[in-house]
């Protein structure tokens, strides 16, 4: 096949994006696990590991720029590189969100019976894995299903947020000390941020699915 070196570089890019995706999923899963285990060492490994994800992102960004500049890709190759270029940004941001989640998980003392952070986390992580599988296998059909599931997660998160706010409104803090009130507010903030960040992981999973659909079918329906 002509342009063998170029084809090899495209293959390497795909492989390295998938390796980065695998690492990001692993970090997200670890962060989500700390909501149950409250394992500070595991949380610390996620936070400290973000640098590695950032480096991989920058390396892959440079690879994409170089391929665009030197190889002038077109058609399917162009869509693959531009989709990958966007997808690594989503992965990098999910890495950031995983570090946030690891922090919240180990710092929050309060729980809400009607807010199952682990359940929301499991759904978003599953969505992310499915989006990555769609990219890896170039499966267009799966991308619409992933986008649909994000609507469910959004509704789930909105409901969870309302539970937290309502609990705050209804709660009695009459005799609480300033320190207790501050601790309560910190917990409420962290819980709301946890819900928001999980919802954002879902958004990034949809972005990955949308770019995959564009890559495979030249269809930008999910991008808009």
């Amino acid at each position: 096949m002509p342009r063998e070196q170029y084809q090899e570089r495209l293959g390497e890019l795909r492989q390295r994006v998938l390796e980065m995706a695998e690492l990001v999923v692993e970090r997200l899963r670890t962060a989500l696990g700390t909501f149950e285990s409250r394992d500070e060492e595991a949380a610390r490994s996620v936070i400290d590991g973000d640098e590695e994800i950032n480096e991989r992102y920058l390396d892959l960004e440079a690879d994409c720029v170089q391929l665009l500049a030197l190889q002038q890709p077109v058609a399917g190759d162009l869509r693959f590189i531009t989709a990958s270029f966007k997808i690594i940004t989503d992965l990098e941001r999910i890495g950031d969100l995983a570090t946030n989640l690891a922090e919240y998980a180990t710092e929050t003392d309060r729980t809400y019976s009607d807010v199952d952070v682990r359940e929301i986390g499991a759904l978003t992580a599953e969505m992310l894995e499915d989006a990555i599988d769609a990219y890896a296998g170039e499966v267009a059909d799966a991308t619409f299903e992933i986008a649909r599931r994000d609507d469910e997660i959004d509704a789930y998160c909105q409901q969870a947020g309302e539970v937290v706010i309502r609990d705050l409104i209804d709660g009695e803090i009459g005799d609480s000390s300033d320190e207790e009130i501050r601790a309560l507010l910190d917990d409420v903030s962290r819980t709301l941020l946890t819900i928001r960040d999980l919802e954002r992981v879902g958004d990034h999973a949809v972005n990955i699915a949308a770019r995959t659909l564009y890559m495979v079918e030249n269809d930008d329906e999910l991008i808009y």
Binding site: N54, D90, E92, R200, N207, I223, Y224
Partner: peptide, 18 residues
């Protein structure tokens, strides 16, 4: 490395080579 606060990607793809 938070590079943006915008999470949803609404930007149109820009691959118009013409």
């Amino acid at each position: 490395m938070n590079m943006s606060t915008q999470e949803t990607d609404g930007s149109p793809i820009s691959t118009d080579v013409r």
